[in-house]
Design a protein around this nucleic acid. Structure first.
Lengths: 167, 167
DNA sequence: ATAAACTTTCACAAATCATTGAAAGTTTAA
DNA sequence: TTAAACTTTCAATGATTTGTGAAAGTTTAT
């Protein structure tokens, strides 16, 4: 497999992974492209490489910046904006974990809490609803704690934890 | 908040969570409905509760069975099929983790491996591609190991692990 | 102040994904 | 075997998401 083929494969695989996880394809592909690029890229270069429109590129680069995984790079003497992504995979994982917790897990925990604390009217179905949503709430809470731990620890936390778990 | 309101809230929240994670809304809602039901439900009852068509119900129940989180229940003397979902959250988490690993993570690991082992032609861009995809491969592998551990251990593994990690 | 260089927005178009419902298929009971 | 009871399939349709490109907006240099 040659460079170009490998690059395209990586970008498209990353793109479909994104789709599967509720992240749009272009956004994931732009990130992938920047991730393997040896230098910051301009909007034009991204458009050209991925064959997408200016508007699409602009929107999705903005979202990536919003997520905190892409940053503007100012090249001296250039008017254009250039973009880079976080290159360290551990840091990347931390940022993504943090965002997913904030956007997805927190709201669900909130709802589960609300639902699991309704008044117990003594009927079987109410009891079941309370019992099951409470169990889910506990699970979600635990999962979220793990993610947050991941987010707040130093970069080697993940690796170190694996040792503890597997010991 | 009364029972009905709480139930509806739970089902719709679970449904949108599903969407966010690439699982279709109806599928997630059916699972939620079964999860808080005190008895097995028939196709008709599911259709009625969620206001969805017979075809839709059939397809998505089938998928849930495929995932291994819903089972047919045969009620003696009845012709209809009734369905139940796994009620234990830990077991549910294990099954879902296992499926997600199989369907999503494994294929990506495979591609990352392929891409990261192309021949190093000495150019900077090839080196960067190899370096970065290798790093991702290692991360994905680690994440997958964690998930598999979760899948293969006894039910208290998760809780116990948290202790080790937080100690 | 003006114009060139560049970025963002947004109405519309295109593509993707979910849902329906009726027809075809299957199972069961008699 | 037949017919009733039930389940599955799938082409058509509806809904939602994503992408486009031209126009509007912004910034910078002069």
């Amino acid at each position: 497999m040659e460079y170009k083929e490998a690059k395209d494969k990586f970008i498209s695989t990353w793109g479909s992974l994104g789709t599967l996880w509720g992240i749009n394809k272009a956004m994931a592909q732009i990130q992938a492209l920047l991730f393997i690029s040896t230098k910051p890229l301009s909007t034009e270069e991204i458009m050209e490489e991925l064959q997408i429109s200016r508007g699409n590129t602009s929107m999705n680069v903005r979202q990536l910046i919003d997520w905190g995984i892409v940053t503007k790079e100012l090249v001296p003497g250039e008017r254009k904006e250039y973009f880079t992504t976080e290159k360290d995979v551990q840091e990347l994982a931390r940022v993504i974990a943090k965002e997913r917790s904030r956007r997805e897990i927190q709201p669900v925990i909130k709802t589960l809490k609300e639902v699991s604390t309704i008044k117990d009217d003594g009927t079987e179905k109410t009891r079941e609803l309370i019992k099951q949503t409470k169990a889910l709430h506990d699970l979600a809470d635990t999962a979220d704690m793990m993610l947050n731990k991941l987010v707040n620890q130093n970069q080697n936390w993940l690796t170190k934890s694996i040792f503890k778990i597997f010991k």
